[in-house]
């Protein structure tokens, strides 16, 4: 780990002030090279600093913000507001979250370990980095996420855990998180604070497709800080779930996962939201599969059709081709479970 200045922010203005402008104001530099990094739970940042993947000159500790609104969970007529400094375990164990938005509680509960869930903030969780081995191992120069234009060692390397959807010719890294899929499925908004004030944005617009610039992972601009997630009260919130398939029964990233939010009308799909994890380069909404299901019953024919549609554009590599079939089966099982769950 390289030496850094440790700065403790007592509140939001303090956090934003501690941000030092980057040399490159265009945002084109790799996000891992940002000179100032916010520190919340640290479960990604400290790990990647130890690996020398991230090398901030200044680390701004924002954990004191959990004493403000950014550390609170609020539930009411306007829906659910999750402060960005709420820890994963707090949201996973929250009664209103569990009963009204089971997909959120499950996506958090099935992630990481109890210790990490006590540490990791919700804001940091959605910004966690890919676990692509070649991104984490700096002995490989050829990683377009770390060294733009250097190539991608994963293309012909060990790519079993990597993405089949949303990839590009420059990067096949998979997005590792779970909670983000729940937010996508529930039409969540993300609240972002910056020097110019606070803005709201659909959460689905936060992560960028890798394209030819995989080093730029989000649409956040320099110094911006996620402060909350806003989840609307919509008819499909209660009939929602997260299904996660992985190599181990616990404490493991998804090989394939599905977040489902379903509005059923007497066995027919009035509306549905599908987000896929483990198989994609960014939190992935299967919009075409959703459209296919609307107005239709959840039966084997429709499930197969929806699953085929969701993976129509899949681009498997040598070791991860199994993810297409696994992803389809995961999606079908999740939809069937959602249709039959008691609410």
């Amino acid at each position: 780990m390289r030496p850094f200045h440790y700065v403790k922010a007592n509140d939001l203005p303090g956090a934003l002030q501690a941000f030092a402008p980057q040399n490159d104001p265009t945002n084109a530099a790799p996000s891992v090279n940002a000179a100032t990094q916010y520190l919340a739970g640290g479960t990604t940042l400290i790990d990647l600093m130890k690996l020398d993947v991230m090398r901030p000159a200044t680390v701004t500790d924002i954990n004191a913000l959990d004493q403000s609104k950014a550390g609170q969970i609020e539930f009411g007529d306007n829906g659910l507001r999750l402060g960005a400094l709420v820890r994963m375990s707090q949201a996973a164990d929250h009664e209103a979250v569990k009963s009204n938005f089971p997909v959120i509680a499950q996506s958090l509960q099935l992630a990481a370990s109890a210790q990490i869930r006590n540490m990791a903030s919700l804001g940091g969780n959605v910004l966690q980095r890919t676990r692509c081995t070649y991104f984490r191992d700096t002995s490989y120069d050829n990683c377009n996420k770390r060294n733009p234009g250097s190539g991608c060692a994963a293309m012909d390397g060990m790519n079993r855990n990597l993405a089949v959807l949303g990839t590009s010719n420059d990067c096949i890294a998979s997005y590792p998180g779970d909670f983000a899929q729940a937010l996508i499925a529930l039409d969540a908004m993300v609240e972002i604070a910056g020097s110019a004030g606070t803005r709201m944005m659909p959460f689905a617009q936060l992560h960028r497709a890798p394209g030819s610039t995989p080093q730029i992972e989000t649409t956040l601009t320099q110094g911006e800080l996620i402060t909350a997630f806003q989840i609307p009260n919509l008819p499909w919130g209660k009939r929602s779930l997260y299904l996660k398939i992985r190599d181990r029964a616990s404490y493991e990233f998804a090989l394939a996962s599905a977040a489902i939010a379903l509005d059923l009308d007497n066995g027919t799909v009035r509306d549905v939201r599908i987000a896929l994890g483990g198989v994609s380069a960014q939190p992935w909404r299967a919009a075409e599969a959703e459209a296919l299901l609307k107005g239709k019953p959840i039966d084997d024919t429709m499930l197969l059709a929806a699953a085929d549609k969701a993976f129509e554009g899949a681009r498997p590599k040598k070791h991860n081709a199994f993810k297409v079939q696994l992803g389809k089966a995961t999606l079908m099982r999740a939809l069937r479970d959602a249709a039959t769950m008691t609410i």
């Binding site: 403790k8 520190l39 640290g42 210790q115 006590n118």
Partner: peptide, 12 residues
């Protein structure tokens, strides 16, 4: 709260 001492800065 149980946490991981290796991923927390002492200063924090």
């Amino acid at each position: 709260q149980r946490v991981l001492g290796c991923l927390i800065l002492a200063a924090a």
